Computed example of a mutant assay.
Amino acid sequence: MTPRDAADENPSGEHSGEPSDKNDKPSGSRWSNLDRPPLNAAALRRGLVREGGLWSEVDVVQRTGSTNSDLVARAGAGKAAEGAVLVAEEQTAGRGRLDRRWTAPPRSGLFFSVLLRPSEVPVARWGWLPLLTGVAVATGLARAAGVDTALKWPNDLLVTVAGEERKAGGILVERAGDDAVVVGVGINVTLRQDELPVPQAGSLALAGAVSMDRDPLLRAVLRSLEDWYGRWRAAEGDPVASGLQETYAAGCATLGRVVRAELPGGRSVVGEAVAVDADGRLVLATEKGVQEPVGAGDIVHLRSA
C-alpha cells in the first residue's frame, strides 16, 4: 500500500479471501509476479505463534477490503482472541486516519492488523498505542531492512529518498468494543517510483533497504511490537517507566520542527513542536508564547526550527 495520505490498513470481512501459504497456487496472473512472491503463512505461524507469547494466530488472505475492518468485525463477533494477526496480500479499501484511502499493488507491501486487549492499562493511556506501534515498526525495520525510519506524529512512518522525507507507511488504531483495540499497519516495501500514488510517498526499496523479503520483515516488526507492548503493559501504560516516551521522542521527526496543526472544527495552530507529553499529545510552542497540547489533528511539517 502506498500512503495516499494517511496510513494504515484494515479489512472488511465480506471481501476477505482464503488464507494462503507460499506453496499455494492462486489463480490469476496478478499472483504470478515472481518479483513479489507471496507470504509464507505457515512459516509465519511457526515463527510467531508460541506458548506464552502474544501472537495467538496468524491469518494471511490474498485480497480483502481492509484488515482493520475485518478484525474489528471478528472481535465483535467473538471470533478473535488477543494477539490475532490478519495480513492481506492486497487491500481494496485500505484506510488511514480520517477515512483517507491507501492504495498499493498486490504483494508490494505489508498490510496487517492485530487485536490487542490491554486490560492492565487504564483507558486514558491507550492513546499511546499509535506511538508505541510506530516505535516498534521503526525498530523492527531498522533491524531487518537496514532502513532508518523516522516517526511523524502521530501515526506516519517516514523514510529518506534522495535526501527527501517521504511517507512509506502509517498506523491506524480503532476501538473494538469496550476492552479491545485493533492496530493496523501499512508499509510500502517494493513500490517503484512509477507506482507511487503521490510524489510524497516512498517505500523501503526507494530508501535503499538491504532486504525486501516480506516474511522476515513482518516477523521482525511483529516481534518488536510484542516486545514494546509487553513493556508498556507491564508498566500499566506508564510511558516513562516503560521507556516509551523517551524512545518515541528520540525517533520523532516532528519534534524540533515548526509545524501547522490542523485541528477538528477547522481551527489550525502554528508553532514549534517541543515535546510529546505524558498523554502522548504533541506540545506546540506558539508565537504567542503559549504551549498548546494537540491530541488529534493533521500535522504539516513546515520547516526546521
Score class of each variant (00 low, 15 high):
Val121Cys: 12
Val173Gly: 02
Val60Ile: 14
Gly265Ile: 01
Ala43Met: 09
Gly28Met: 04
Ala73Asp: 11
Leu129Gly: 05
Leu284Ser: 09
Ile171Ser: 02
His15Phe: 14
Ala253Ser: 10
Arg45Lys: 10
Ser242Phe: 04
Leu44Ala: 10
Ala285Phe: 06
Val258Ile: 13
Asp215Ser: 06
Val240Ala: 09
Arg50Tyr: 01
Glu90Pro: 02
Val294Ala: 00
Val123Phe: 10
Arg4Tyr: 12
Gly140Val: 02
Gln91Asn: 11
Pro105Arg: 13
Leu129Gln: 07
Gly251Ala: 04
Pro197Thr: 09
Asp156Lys: 08
Val210Gly: 15
Ser66Pro: 00
Gln62Ile: 07
Glu82Gly: 05
Arg97Gln: 14
Arg143Ile: 00
Asp35Gly: 14
Asp156Pro: 05
Gly52Val: 05
Ala168Phe: 00
Ala209His: 13
Arg192Pro: 04
Met1Trp: 11
Cys252Ser: 11
Glu57Thr: 12
Pro26Ser: 07
Ser27Tyr: 04
Gln291Glu: 15
Leu157Met: 04
Arg100Cys: 02
Asp277Thr: 09
Leu141Gly: 08
Ser268Glu: 14
Ala145Ser: 13
Gln62Met: 14
Gly65Asn: 01
Asp35Phe: 07
Asn33Arg: 14
Leu115Trp: 02
Gly230Lys: 05
Leu34Ala: 13
Thr190Trp: 01
Leu141Thr: 00
Gly169Met: 01
Arg45Trp: 03
Arg125Val: 02
Thr103Leu: 12
Leu217Ser: 11
Gly52Trp: 04
Ala285Pro: 08
Lys152Arg: 06
Pro19Ala: 06
Trp102Ile: 04
Arg125Tyr: 05
Ala234Ser: 14
Asp156Val: 02
Met212Ile: 15
Val121Trp: 08
Ala136Ile: 00
Leu255Ala: 07
Arg267Ser: 11
Thr67Ser: 06
Thr2Lys: 12
Asp279Thr: 08
Gly17Lys: 02
Arg46His: 10
Ala43Asp: 15
Val294Glu: 04
Glu287Phe: 01
Glu226Phe: 10
Thr160Cys: 03
Arg219Lys: 07
His15Ala: 12
Ala145Gly: 07
Leu44His: 06
Arg100Gly: 07
Pro38Asn: 08
Glu120Gly: 03
Val258His: 13
Val240Phe: 01
Thr2Phe: 05
Glu18Lys: 09
Gly127Gln: 10
Gly256Ser: 06
Gln291Ile: 06
Pro106Arg: 06
Gly28Tyr: 07
Glu246Ala: 15
Pro239Ser: 13
Pro118Ala: 01
Ala249Asp: 06
Ser304Ile: 11
Ser12Pro: 03
Val159Phe: 05
Gly94Arg: 07
Asp213Tyr: 10
Gly13His: 11
Ala145Glu: 12
Pro26Phe: 02
Arg45Leu: 02
Leu225Ile: 03
Thr139Cys: 05
Val290Pro: 07
Gln62Glu: 15
Arg166Thr: 03
Leu110Tyr: 09
Glu14Thr: 14
Arg74Lys: 14
Val61Ile: 05
Phe112Val: 07
Gly96Pro: 00
Trp153Gly: 04
Arg233Ile: 13
Leu132Thr: 08
Thr64Cys: 13
Val198Phe: 05
Asp227Ser: 14
Glu120Lys: 12
Leu244Ala: 12
Leu282Ala: 10
Ala275Asn: 15
Val198Glu: 14
Trp55Ser: 09
Lys79Leu: 11
Val294Asp: 02
Leu129Cys: 09
Ala235Lys: 02
Asp21Cys: 08
